[in-house]
Design a binder for these strands. Structure first.
Length: 669
DNA sequence: GCTCGTATCG
């Protein structure tokens, strides 16, 4: 057997002068066993250098020279895996008659790293057929594959194998993986049992259990384990802090959150990205945006997750414009948004009804290949609907391979807002066919669609569906929807009877009835409903306004005045209503009677014209609800000042060309 | 070999 070419590969593929080369040169002519050692060290070199070309070259050289390359199969597998070529590693593995358990383990963990959990599980299942026994390394990686694939039974059976082999409780890594798997399955009983089977615990094991509790909504228990861990003298790491802070946020337990914040500062983990991100979200949930901002500003290089958390935090505190500014800053600093970022940002667009921005984010999502993500789709449907384009929302919905409940609910809401009650109802009956169970939000949306479209009969039908469906009976807010539907249709007594059927009517329910009384000028029932609301919440400013509207509509100005006095006494002030419109990428905000806009004069002039035109078309101003005691002419005028009318008029003006002369010329045009 | 932070609907 000629083995001379070894010298060739050593000079071609290894850096000159290294040890492996010398070794090869020395042993080049000493027979097969010497070559075994030589190949072994060359392969070792390949493992370290992670060079796929070298590995392939050595592999080919072995085959060409007729060297029994499979005698070094485990090393070859190792080399290929280290170069990232799991399929070539698998090829070698399949050619081998008795791969060592280490090779089985390496391949399985490589598959799991590459998110090819199915391949890992298939491989695991083969191991028993070749009478090789899995070891603690096998178990510490394979459980992750079962949890990725949500194979509950397979995971439990594998736990069984471990017990049969007498490995239960023998290895920390294994138990941590097992705790993690059970936690991901939501089987916290089993997770706790596994945790307790280990007598001397470590930080990873404890953290796995803490994470499990927070992810399963058992935040108090998570804090309990953290305390236990601290008491045992186990030092928390960044993973631990990240999760414990989430638990504090979910519980809105600020004092504990601050305490943990202090601990992260003391241990230096506050500068790690994950705990810092959790701090942002903890303060966000406790509504301390300034604290979140402070944490965020201290992060040196915020990544996508940190940016996303901060955007979500601003939205949580209803600071939508700022949130969207943050999205822009993020993109400007070249941090790539992901599905989390875009679905979060879309929530802000939905609230502000920013159609243009929704389209832009939609386009970004497509560029990033995220247009099938269910969160993105659901928020797109929601935000297209809320910005007045339910047709596009429907197109997104129809593009879904598997529509889910949230996207259905969002679309129904879109139709409700669009006044298309029929389409909302149609969707409601359609999802039954898709096997989707409606939830509370579905019913709320469908009923408000019926309400907005005056579809009393259809609403009744949906409600009876609901009564039959829900074992404990519809929730109070669903009764409120039905009260609204009946009330608007003028069936006030039926609405009142419905409230009587509710165990503990809340203020929303009574206020809904009050709103209906307002529409139909039912003063005595209005007074009754208002008293009920104020019994439950004397500070409910909307109720005073509603009731005084009812009095005003009947000309009972004495009552209106006394209600106003009462509000002043109780130091109540209703926030003025605001309307806004998005024109030329700018938001213009208006309040009733607002003169602060630069184009106010033009706007009022145009509005007067518009109203005259609509009167010609048959519009009769409904002046019943104007608060002040004034004559008809004045009432009409005060209706003109309504914020929504001002905003719409500004929009009309902007598109009419009437304003171009007075605008500062745009250099881009 | 094991553990982490960001997301959708009334």
């Amino acid at each position: 057997m000629r083995l001379l070419p070894l010298r060739t590969i050593s000079s071609r593929f290894l850096t000159t002068g290294n040890k492996a080369q010398l070794l090869l040169a020395k042993k080049a002519n000493c027979g097969l066993s010497a070559n075994f050692e030589s190949y072994k060290s060359v392969l070792q070199r390949c493992v370290v250098e992670k060079s796929i070309t070298k590995t392939r070259a050595v592999h080919n050289h072995m085959k060409q020279t007729g060297f029994p390359h499979l005698s070094l199969g485990n090393k070859l597998i190792d080399a290929y895996l280290n170069c990232g070529s799991v399929d070539e590693a698998r090829q070698v593995f399949d050619d081998m008659i008795h791969p060592h358990v280490v090779s089985w383990n390496s391949l399985m963990s490589a598959y799991i790293r590459l998110k090819r959990s199915q391949d890992a599980v298939s491989l695991y299942r083969k191991i028993f057929m070749v009478s090789i026994l899995p070891d603690e390394f096998t178990f510490s990686s394979i459980f992750k594959a079962f949890s990725d694939l949500k194979l509950v039974n397979g995971g439990r059976a594998t736990h069984g194998h471990l017990v049969v082999l007498g490995l239960e409780g023998s290895n920390m890594f294994m138990s941590s993986a097992l705790v993690d798997m059970y936690a991901k399955f939501g089987m916290m009983q089993e997770a706790l049992f596994t945790y307790e089977a280990i007598s001397v615990k470590d930080v990873v094991l404890a953290t796995a259990l803490i994470v499990g509790y927070t992810q399963n909504g058992e935040d108090l228990k998570a804090l309990g384990i953290f305390e236990e861990m601290v008491n045992c003298g186990i030092k928390a790491n960044d993973f631990t802090f990240a999760s414990v802070l989430i638990a504090c946020g979910n519980l809105e337990n600020l004092s504990f959150g601050r305490l943990i914040h202090g601990l992260t500062l003391r241990s230096g983990f506050h500068s790690r990205i994950a705990p810092a991100t959790s701090l942002i979200s903890m303060y966000s949930k406790c509504l301390l945006v300034e604290d979140s901002l402070k944490i965020f500003n201290e992060i040196v290089n915020p990544n996508t997750v940190a940016w996303t958390a901060m955007i979500g935090c601003l939205l949580h505190s209803h600071r939508e414009e700022e949130a969207l500014q943050f999205l822009l800053s993020m993109i400007r600093s070249s941090v790539k948004p992901n599905a989390f970022t875009l679905s979060t940002a879309l929530r802000g667009c939905a609230t502000l009804a920013l159609f243009e921005l929704v389209k832009q984010i939609h386009a970004s999502a497509m560029k990033l290949g995220l247009e099938t993500n269910r969160y993105i789709c659901a928020t797109l449907i929601d935000s297209y609907g809320k910005s007045g384009h339910v047709g596009i929302a429907r197109m997104v919905f129809d593009s879904l391979a598997f529509p889910d409940l949230v996207s259905v609910n969002s679309l129904i809401y879109g139709y409700a807002q669009d006044g298309d009650g029929m389409e909302a109802i149609r969707l409601f009956y359609m999802i039954k066919g898709l096997g989707i169970e409606p939830n509370n939000a579905t019913y709320v949306n469908v009923l408000s669609a019926c309400s907005n479209s005056g579809m009393l009969e259809e609403g009744h039908q949906v409600f009876s569906f609901l009564v039959a469906d829900h074992k404990p009976g519809p929730s109070t807010d669903l009764y409120a929807c039905m009260v609204d539907l009946l009330g608007r249709a003028g069936r006030l007594h039926e609405a009142a009877e419905l409230i009587a059927r509710v165990q503990k009517p809340d203020k929303i329910l009574w206020r809904t009835l009050l709103g209906a009384c307002k529409i139909h000028g039912e003063v005595s029932m209005a007074k009754w409903a208002a008293d009920k609301v104020l019994e439950l919440d004397p500070g409910d400013d909307a109720t005073y306004i509603l009731l005084s509207n009812v009095y005003a509509s009947l000309g009972q100005w004495k009552e209106v005045t006394s209600l106003k006095c009462l509000m002043r006494e109780r130091k109540l002030k209703k926030d003025p209503a605001v309307s806004w419109i998005h024109v030329n990428q700018e938001i213009h905000t208006f309040m009733a009677g607002d003169m602060s806009h630069a184009k106010s004069e033009l706007i009022y002039e145009e509005l007067k014209e518009l109203v005259e035109k609509t009167k010609d078309l048959g519009y009769v101003p409904d002046t019943r609800f104007v608060l002040q005691d004034m004559d008809e002419f004045e009432k009409e005028r005060s209706l003109l000042y309504h914020s929504e009318k001002l905003a719409v008029t500004y929009g009309v003006l902007s598109n009419s060309g009437k304003m171009t002369l007075s605008l500062i010329p745009n250099p881009k045009q």
